[in-house]
Design a binder for these strands. Sequence first.
RNA 1: GCCGCAGUAGCUUAGUUGGAUAGAGCGUACGACUGUUAAUCGUAAGGUCAUCGGUUCGAAUCCGCUCUGCGGCGCCA
Length: 439
Amino acid sequence: MVREWKQVADVLREDCDGSQVELRGWIYRTRGSNKMLFIVLRDSSGIIQCVGSRNDLGDGPFDLARSLMVESSIIVRGKISPDSRAPGGFELQMNALEAVSPAEPFPITKDQSEEYLRDMRHLWLRSRKLTAIMRVRSTLTGAIHDFFRGKGFHEFTPPIFTPNSCEGGSTLFEVNYYDRKIYLTQSWQLYAEAAVFALEKIYDVSPTFRAERSKTSRHLSEFWMAEMESAWMTYMDVIEIAQEEIKFIIGRILERNRADLEVLDVDREMLGSYLQKEWKVITYTEALKILKERAGMEVEWGKDLRTIEEDKLMEFFDAPLTVIQYPKETMAFYKPMEGDAPDAPGPVAKCFDMLAPSGYGEIVGGSERETDLDALMDSLRKEGEDPKDYEWYLDLRRYGSVPHSGYGLGVERLLSWICGLDNIKDAIPFPRTMKRISP
RNA sequence: GCCGCAGUAGCUUAGUUGGAUAGAGCGUACGACUGUUAAUCGUAAGGUCAUCGGUUCGAAUCCGCUCUGCGGCGCCA
């Protein structure tokens, strides 16, 4: 028969009736004297203080317990009781303690640098901060699946190895594939466009690889994108879906990760307020006007918004902002021209970016897709690509194309914003950047 | 690709006109302590000052190369 044990969060939640419980976990902290011992026990659900006296445990177990170091795995038994002196308000009065596996001196102690913690990532995952983040991450990706499935979307998984680029080849990771050169995927998009004529409404959550030489707190070489693509929808339609999706995610996290948000020191009221606020949509041309009139920043029409301009722009908005209709010139080949843009001095694309508040940058990028075969081939040539390399993609326009749109949401960017992280590297378990591939 | 910052015990660090045995806190070991909140007190071990080269009577300190990491720009999610 399997012996029963409980999780820390469960015993803290239940009314403690004074009965005997067993807990299994790891030593988070120890302190004490030669008569009295305090062990803060950690499991995946939380921490609780366990108290033992030499009298209650006996000399052998007591001395063993005193010798155990942080992160030793243990099983303890005793009675839960309220105590104002215990962190969390409850503690376990131990009458038995069993060492499962004593730990060597744990390398992570009180003083830690970010760099060291990243070297020790395999151990730092056990920290309250990282566990909280990873739990929120799990809620986040789970919410994406629930959101799209609830709307009749099908999960569609793209290949990770791809023969050609999607948005410019300079940022692709090359792979030796049976002595041929191929690449790790940068976006599911071209494949999604093939699938959309079969399934109509699709989504995915999958890894993406970009060899951008970016060394910032907002970039990873390997990250996860949550993408959607839908037949018959315009880019304005999918903007609404993106807004709905993110609100759904935030709502789900507020509902399920209360304790984690507390550990991360996230202002839950602030987070909840985004669900009430209006998420504005403005054009690129309007954005330039705002920058000029309210911030005195002059941006030449046609130039892409840079980080400094995006950050400035977001100072005037208190919820995610969608900027639409960027100049066609700077956009990827598959983004079609918007004919109806009276305020723009030049051709603009049916595209959008969603910017998160407080400097977290672009969290979503999307567009309508070009359906006209000739326009597509022209754009490809302009980007220096050979249309021949895109034959199968161009086929999609030859056999019953329909208007369709989609977007990609950066999972780690969104998680960083929601959790208030100061570095995107903490939003993924084992970050891969230009300078770091281990652990 | 461009610009900037950093590297001293296991960890966090002090260390400037260049000067003799490079200080400390945490952690660890041993000891004391019956209510601690990353306890406190005592003792101890632990350092080729990232590497290589140069300047100098003398380099952790000044100069140069290299290595490693971090951040900003650009690009992007």
